[in-house]
Amino acid sequence: MRVSDLARQADTTSETVRHYTDIGLLKPFRDPGNGYRHYDVADLRLLRFALKARSLGFTLADIQSLATASEEGETPCVQVRSLIERRLEEVESRIRELQALSERMRSAMTEWQDKPDCHLDDGRVCGLIDAVVGEDEARSGR
């Protein structure tokens, strides 16, 4: 299969196939006559695996490590469980951070709703943001 054929069969883009090839995840055969890359069924399986793993939050480095372990005859399942547990903790932490940010943004929008737009002559950029940051600094004791 050529790049476009592999991409179509894996329901991804040719750019993704090229990138995964460039980083060494996919290892196509090069036709010496024309230099085209030719992929086989093993490449298709690995590409589909990589796309599924990416959808679960695994990094390309994770995927390469898992693929290498599999190629060496090991079962990477223990590593998969460990990685996904760590990724889940990271995602849940990031969700909490984003929820707190969302609350601060909503609070600011509510507070600013009736405040007029104004130009400040004291060198500040925007009084709206300064007022919120000032309140946050006062609350946090900075």
Rank of each mutant, 00 (worst) to 15 (best):
C126E: 04
L98I: 10
P116E: 15
L101R: 06
S4Y: 07
E89D: 13
Y39H: 01
L128N: 14
S70Y: 15
K27L: 04
D22W: 02
H119R: 15
E97R: 08
L98M: 15
T110K: 07
K27I: 03
P76F: 08
M105T: 10
H119P: 06
A42L: 00
S55M: 09
L25W: 04
E15L: 09
R54M: 05
R124Q: 05
E111I: 06
I63V: 13
E92P: 01
D31A: 05
S65Q: 04
A69T: 03
K27S: 08
L98E: 07
V41S: 02
D121Q: 15
K52L: 14
E90M: 10
D114R: 15
D136H: 03
V125S: 05
D11N: 14
E111L: 10
E103R: 04
S93T: 12
R81P: 07
G134K: 14
V3E: 11
E15C: 05
F58A: 06
E72K: 12
P28Q: 05
C77Y: 00
A61S: 14
L128H: 15
L6N: 08
E71I: 00
D11K: 14
L101S: 04
T75C: 05
V78H: 07
C118M: 14
R87W: 04
V91I: 07
K52G: 11
Q64K: 06
S82Q: 12
A61Q: 08
H38T: 13
G24P: 08
E89K: 03
H19R: 03
C77L: 02
T12Q: 12
A42N: 07
G141A: 00
D114E: 15
T75V: 03
A7Q: 06
P76V: 11
D22S: 13
R81Y: 09
S82M: 10
D122F: 06
P32S: 08
F58I: 06
A100T: 09
D130Q: 14
W112M: 12
G141Y: 00
I84G: 07
D114T: 15
T12D: 09
K115T: 13
A53K: 12
S70G: 07
I23A: 14
I95E: 11
L47H: 00
I23S: 10
H119E: 14
E72Y: 01
G73E: 11
V132T: 02
S93M: 02
G33T: 04
E97T: 06
I63F: 13
R87V: 11
R87N: 12
R106H: 08
R124H: 05
E135C: 01
L47R: 00
G35Y: 09
M105H: 01
P32F: 01
E92H: 12
T21L: 12
E89P: 00
V78D: 10
S102D: 06
R124G: 02
L46K: 11
